[in-house]
Amino acid sequence: MGLLSSVFKKNVSTEPPKPAAAPSRSADVAAKPAETKKEVKPVADKITLGYTHLSGCTGCTVALADNYAGLLTLLDRYVDLKYMPTLADVRHVQKVDVSFVEGSVCINDKLAVEELKETREKSTIVVALGGCACYGNITRFCRGGQQNQPQHEAYLPINELIKVDVFIPGCAPTPQLIRNVAVMAYLLLKGTKEQKDLATAYLKPLMALPVQGTACGASTACFCDLMTNVIDQGLCMGCGSCASACPVNAITHEYGKPQGERDLCIKCGACYNQCPRSWFSFDVVENYEAINEAIMAALQ
């Protein structure tokens, strides 16, 4: 806690975490003629990002794009988007610092499997983006038979084929969580010592998810995670976050306690991960005000 508060004293109250390495743009712009503006951009200090699109519905892509101006600021100052179907010209996997993977991987699709493995080989950090990449989600229910590749029928969360470093659960994941993770990944790789510590603390729970496994075995998320790891462990206090988080309204509360309509559950993992009694870091959450401000300031 002490560590983090010192981060905030330094970087928030006085100067927001305009990541130390990035030169002050306004100063540069003022000092130099307009034509050289492009050249003085801190491109060298950006992190490189890739986006591999496997079996996902593009909802994750849309969520990323739904940061609107925030996305432009991210791309302008912190992130160099190396490859990405839909939003970038280059589509094929390249060497990057961070790669986002949308969608589960179809093990009957040689190309998808290759792309995933290549993504792992070429990225320092692999982020599973969205319920399908993290847990399989709705693609768990696939039985094949779809034109024009009816033989594609078995889908796995990417964690079952490669080592994954960070989960961003949610169906769709929220623009704000994608933004927060992107800013934190930047601080982790390019920030000062204190910024690295903050980013490490923030990302820690999301980095623990790929290794900790889920209730139903392998890496299938579902309402059972709340049942087994929160409710049956005597930890639920009836806040209602789970019901609010569920994208398909599978959860209601009866006398204050969550009830899951398991046939409705699409296995996205949002309820469990939103629950304050699944994982909760006082170090991070107690500094919510400073962290929120820091992230907003970084995107100003």
């Binding site: 988080a245 304050p276 962290i291």
Partner: peptide, 18 residues
């Protein structure tokens, strides 16, 4: 605990878009 839930969903908005 409900305040903790609110702050968690602000910092880690998993199922709490916007």
């Amino acid at each position: 605990c409900q305040m903790q839930a609110v702050r968690k969903l602000q910092l880690y908005p998993i199922g709490a878009r916007d």
